[in-house]
Nucleic acid binder design. Structure first.
Lengths: 226, 226
DNA sequence: CCAAAAGTGTTAGTGATACACCCATGT
DNA sequence: ACATGGGTGTATCACTAACACTTTTGG
């Protein structure tokens, strides 16, 4: 077992949030070569004693002050030329966070972290653009086949807020009546007795997710043959 | 960049085929510790100058004489205790091969390779059982949302053969008439002017895939809200 | 003429889409 | 009273699911 090649392993976080009616992603600005000054996904190298998830948690905390976040491992990127320093295999983690849990004050090393609209990304280091695109597809898929959206909203929310979240992620308008019918039919939200009153209009009823636990919607992913 | 930890990276092939009316998977028998004599997925360690895909291709060729195979990268497994020799991150590749392209005569190192029904697997080394389960889910999903099945059949085939392939993968009976309607509606196969005659019954028309190129079926993966 | 697999259509039900008006509130 | 966003129902259409008999061949 001694004569085998070994490699650096990185993890990268593709952290999505919704803010200012935009689907945003967290980027840091690199403070060292290569790509110094260029934006990149937060992440870092795996350490010997660490689990993969712990690495990404540690880096998200260090670089963006984010804790307790939903993470989903995606498939690795490992092409030879992807890091000019040498061979690095990176494992992306897709993550979602509610914007009201946010308080991204970059800590310590002060690599300026910031949120960027996914449709207007700056130039990116490494193959991070590709990684982000992959994650975005994944996010869109997940949001339609799981109850993942609960990660993006606070405990209580109006159906309009939820609809907007879906619209922003999928980047398309949805029909209000059909959206509500569908949600209730799927049984992923339930109404509360509380109302949100603000502005000169009828107060909106507040809803919660029945289940704040990642779960599959009934197997709707089916090209059924019978 | 010098003081970072480095790791062994393995790739494992989860190679499916259909034979004898079973969904089978390729396993080798380990010829060294750990897990000597126990069955495991074919695979090996990434080398410095190699792309990930080249490693898995090389190992599949060495260990099972398989070439030119469809490969899909899945998410990595990297828990600390998964390999008793030390930390290894493994990247599984799901693969599919038509059983008539097969001629698995284990080469050189003569690690006895063989095909096993996925529902009757022997004891497996490492976390390979978990990896196989993940791949199987993936396979079932892909087969319903892409034209991937073309990998499993020879150039010309009868619709009954194709249906059996689906039934075996999904592990459920399908309705003949609905299956055919659906396939033709999706436009993934087309008829040829040839027939397969065998046995004392009406000859079956032979079909081919319109497109022997991995492609998505029309985005049927949709919990639609509008 | 018998056995064996191929081939083919219709109906009922369910879910998707499209669409427009009244409601409750603050100012 | 008016402006603002909240809330609701119905009709059509498309797709899914269930189901049984006739055809062609070899022996």
């Amino acid at each position: 077992m001694g004569e085998k090649d070994t490699f650096l392993i990185a993890v990268d976080g593709v952290v999505f949030t919704i803010a200012h009616h935009e689907l945003q992603i967290l980027l840091i600005q690199r403070d060292a070569e290569p790509f110094k000054g260029i934006h990149a996904l937060p992440g870092g190298f795996l350490r010997k004693e660490e689990e993969l998830e712990d690495t990404i948690k540690r880096k998200l905390y260090e670089e963006a002050n984010i804790k307790d976040i939903f993470l989903k491992k995606l498939h690795p990127f490992g092409k030879k030329g992807r890091d000019p320093r040498g061979r690095v295999i990176t494992i992306p983690y897709m993550a979602l966070i509610s914007s009201d849990k946010l308080e991204v004050k970059p800590r310590a090393k002060a690599t300026a972290a910031g949120w960027f609209c996914v449709y207007h990304l700056p130039e990116l280091a490494f193959d991070h653009k590709e990684i982000i695109e992959d994650s975005l597809h994944h996010l869109r898929f997940e949001v339609q086949s799981t109850n993942l959206a609960y990660q993006l909203l606070s405990d209580k929310f109006t159906l309009t807020e939820l609809q907007q979240a879906y619209e922003i992620i999928l980047n398309q308008k949805l029909d209000k009546r059909n959206f509500r019918k569908r949600l209730l039919a799927l049984g992923i939200v339930k109404s509360t007795t509380h109302y949100k009153r603000e502005g000169a209009h009828r107060p909106a009823q507040l809803y919660t997710f029945k289940d704040r636990q990642y779960s599959m919607l009934k197997e709707k992913i089916n090209i059924s043959f019978s």
